[in-house]
């Protein structure tokens, strides 16, 4: 089990420090007028213990991509292709139903978007957590379950009385934290948090975000966090992945993305972050420029790109790894230019 010192990212015994490897994931929504291409072949990696923020405009496919990774795309959506490799060798997309159920929550868990409605209204918090434990680990004694659940609730900063409560007795922030507690109960490799803070006020937002960071640090779990609050992202994540119209255009360490974004879309996105010190005009017009059923040939951002060139109209730019763990899909950057 010796690690090869030369390759920091991969060793030979099959295990790697990659928690999640998404390759060319495609998700379509069937409509009478043709398929809407919601996720158009995205590829990226999440390393162990890393927190990746997934950002982009509303409707760009962030949530659909996350649901694709979890294989939870709801009809009329369908996963059309790609692989989602978890912990090196398990492909979520091609698992049998039974194996998929076994992998869910033990390997990959979800903090849902609408925590408000994500808890079963007719079950106590303790029973919903118990459900997750007992489905995967078999029946357990009441005392063991209680101890585990109370530890978990304490970990996310919830009072122990939450244990016996029904969802409607909790506030929004508390529900969100119950969801976070539930997601980590089985120590998964990866937690996908879909806008975990979007429905909360700024104070609670920070508390929930801090809770997630604490958990990440303590459990070493990898996370994907979806959101469009760039300020919060800048504070929290290790790397940020930027999506535009179903495509991943850039994935970069958060500091690099904030200071020197490479993709023109990322640049515009960063410039659009409202500042509380000065008022500045919005550079990016909102909304999409093309029909998602017929994406244009070439670059997906060509209609709005200030640097658009002839090649952008015809050739789709590949994702180039410009620096370590920093990829960008844009013709402005050539492989030769990389160091």
């Amino acid at each position: 089990m010796s690690t090869n010192p030369k390759s920091g990212t991969q060793n030979n015994n099959g295990h790697s420090d990659v928690a999640l490897d998404v390759r060319d994931l495609r998700v379509h929504y069937k409509t009478p007028e043709g398929d809407v291409i919601a996720v158009n072949g995205i590829s990226f990696k999440v390393y162990k213990g890393e927190l990746v923020g997934l950002v982009g405009e509303s409707g760009c496919g962030k949530t659909t991509a996350a649901m694709g990774i979890l294989r939870l795309v709801q009809p009329p959506g369908r996963i059309m292709g790609g692989r989602v490799m978890l912990d090196g060798d398990m492909d979520i997309i091609n698992l049998g139903n039974k194996e998929l159920r076994r992998a869910r929550w033990t390997q990959i868990a979800l903090v849902p978007q609408g925590a408000m409605n994500s808890l079963n209204p007719t079950m106590r918090v303790k029973d919903q957590i118990k459900d997750a434990i007992e489905t995967h680990e078999g029946r357990q004694s009441k005392a063991v379950l209680k101890e585990r659940t109370l530890d978990l609730l304490a970990l996310v900063g919830l009072p122990s009385r939450t244990f016996n409560m029904y969802p409607h007795e909790l506030s929004g922030g508390m529900k969100q934290r119950v969801c976070i507690a539930m997601a980590i109960v089985l120590n998964p490799i990866l937690v996908i948090a879909d806008e975990p803070t979007s429905a909360l006020d700024v104070i609670v937002q920070r508390v929930v975000a801090q809770t997630m960071l604490d958990i990440k640090k303590r459990l070493g779990v990898s996370m994907i966090m979806i959101g469009h609050d760039m300020g919060l992202m800048a504070q929290m994540v290790d790397r940020v992945a930027v999506m535009y119209a179903g495509n991943l255009v850039e994935i970069a360490p958060v500091r690099a993305a904030m200071k020197a974004p490479m993709h023109p879309y990322t640049q515009l996105l960063i410039e659009s972050i409202p500042s509380i010190k000065e008022r500045k005009p919005l550079k990016l017009t909102e909304g999409l420029t093309h029909d998602l059923r017929n994406p244009p040939p070439g670059c997906i951002f060509q209609f709005r790109c200030p640097h658009v060139a002839e090649t952008c109209r015809t050739q789709k730019p590949p994702m180039l790894e410009i620096q370590t763990r920093h990829g960008v899909a844009c013709h402005l950057y050539k492989p030769e230019e990389t160091a």
């Binding site: 939870l72 998929l100 929550w105 489905t135």
Partner: peptide, 13 residues
Amino acid sequence: EDYMILADAKGLT
């Protein structure tokens, strides 16, 4: 409902 999707994500039977 969202809780049905979460139940599915939890890998319940």
